[in-house]
Amino acid sequence: MKIKLRNPSREVEMHGRRRVKDVLRELDILPGTVLVIRGADLLTADEVVGDGDELEVRPVMSGGSAAS
């Protein structure tokens, strides 16, 4: 499967079926810091993905502005 990552933008390839949480673990990404998107769908951590899938791992962190 193809996985699109951001900040910096890049693409990685993975082979075989596995759960979203395992994909994130292999990429060393905390599940609470990203959305995992397949087409028009958001995927939960227990969803199984595999060859042929195209995923986007989109970070959710924003900001910089110190005080609020």
Binding site: R6, L35, R58, P59, V60, G63, G64
Partner: peptide, 27 residues
């Protein structure tokens, strides 16, 4: 993550990339 999910599910086209100055910010 909840606001990002809401924006995505509502089809809101937002800027995903970070501000170039935010890199390395203490916050």
């Amino acid at each position: 993550r909840e606001t990002a999910a809401y924006a995505f599910l509502r089809g809101i086209d937002y800027i995903v990339d970070e501000c170039p100055f935010a890199k390395g910010a203490t916050s």
